[in-house]
Design a protein around this nucleic acid. Structure first.
Lengths: 252, 252
DNA sequence: CGCACATTTGACGAGAATCAACTGCAGTGG
DNA sequence: CCACTGCAGTTGATTCTCGTCAAATGTGCG
């Protein structure tokens, strides 16, 4: 990793952590050469802002516009005919988004800004790496690892919505978010900033807003989670993990 | 496509359709060169049988053994601590399986034979294509398209388990299976052979066996589906598609 | 036949959705 | 300053979908 490169890019505060994480292989195990760091650096040098609620519609057969998220949260969403919404997958600061090269003709999903978002466009990076992967082996590897991680997250999401109870889903999600944010240095003690509304959480977990609220209350009563002023704090990592693994407790 | 090559491989009956479909790009849009057809042909020349119930456990960090399914159905499964099971994704004849190159250290999922299965090992094909994608552009493309199709299926699965009602899930699954089997020539009229037990369907859709049974009865009563002797027949494609899209009908 | 297995049925209860109202809070403007 | 607005969160009452348990029926097979 070439420290000098991202020092120019890092802004005071949270950004530097995110940018540093990106230079270290998007949370994977890849190492980048000088050439690769330069390509990445050029890509990250221009930031774009986007307000909460904005949606990037994926047109049929179009090449997606891949991005690196620098701050804020995004989500891939899909709707049913009567308006029910499901958030397929969440994208946090430091995550690459929209890197899937082939978009199916069928109505897929769209990317929505769940909060205000700042991102860097990665179209040229994608194109260069795809054109000559031999020149950018580290980036090519990191992108592949990233694709695999997304698949892992989708599988977890299927477990949550398919077979887990409400409080198990919530515990599982809390742990996933904590681990992902911790990896890019955005955890605060045993907690993290949680910008999502209960409505949005409901759309992630496939349940109603009211039930999200009641489930959170239960986790608070059981002293597993503290949720206050846009911040979640995990009070008992072990018991939360046990809950998320699907052990059916004897009711308290 | 070089017809002469797979004629040697095709066995009487259903197999020839599946093998022909594989030579035509795994249901994607890729075209294979002579060299690629030969590699594929070599890969498909040896068939392995595997009884129902057998599971391929994916060991941590191990390279999966990719396969082409020639007959029978497989599924990727994941379990919770107390035994609840979710079938993440189904693999039908003509589908490539286990092609994900990097398996995470964390307990992922395992591949289970849901029926008796015959398959062809694709390890060498995978290795060669990964080593020199320039020699096998068509295969490389087909594999990438295949990865993308799997992601699309996972997204559909999240929609089903996350936001759809029981009868909508069933309708949606029936249509997916019909389309996939039809693509490889395994549809029979408006129907197809359905080897899964109601238990297995329940684990796919994230519901209980009893409820699967009752939901199927409802679809039969509504003259949308006929299910008899291991065969499903779609009686009204349009209404089933409408149901699967999430339109809430006025109750009959 | 008898066995194993899949499907079907009924009764009951648990988990979650729905609807509607109410609270709390920050911002806004009179 | 305070009323007014908008939005997220909270609560209660009710309904509904679906799971659980247990038993019965059906089906293929050695």
């Amino acid at each position: 990793m070439s420290t000098s490169l991202f020092n120019d890019l890092a802004r005071p505060g949270i950004d530097s952590k995110v940018i540093s994480a990106l230079f270290n292989g998007f949370g994977g195990k890849a190492n980048f050469s000088q050439r690769e760091s330069e390509l990445l650096s050029g890509c990250l040098s221009r930031h774009v802002s986007c307000e909460a609620g904005h949606e990037f519609i994926s047109s049929a057969n179009a090449l997606e516009h891949p991005k690196f998220i620098l701050s804020g949260w995004m989500g891939r969403t899909k709707h049913l005919a009567d308006g029910r919404r499901q958030i397929i997958d969440l994208y946090l600061p430091g995550d690459p988004t929209g890197f899937g090269l082939w978009i199916e003709a069928s109505a897929q999903a769209c990317y929505a800004c769940l909060t205000q978002v700042r991102y860097a466009d990665a179209s040229t990076l994608t194109r260069r790496v795809a054109a000559s992967p031999n020149l950018y082996p580290g980036l090519a590897l990191a992108l592949q690892q990233m694709e695999h991680e997304i698949q892992t997250r989708l599988i977890d999401q299927i477990m949550r919505t398919g077979r887990m109870l409400a409080h198990e889903r919530m515990a599982h999600l809390a742990l996933e978010l904590y681990r992902r944010l911790d990896r890019v240095g955005l955890s605060v003690g045993n907690g993290f900033q949680m910008p999502l509304t209960q409505d949005q959480i409901a759309d992630v977990l496939g349940m109603s807003t009211v039930h999200v609220n009641r489930t959170l209350q239960q986790l608070r009563r059981d002293r597993l989670l503290r949720t206050a002023s846009g911040r979640w704090e995990i009070l008992d990592m072990d018991r939360l993990a046990e809950m998320a693994s699907g052990v059916r407790d004897t009711p308290s």
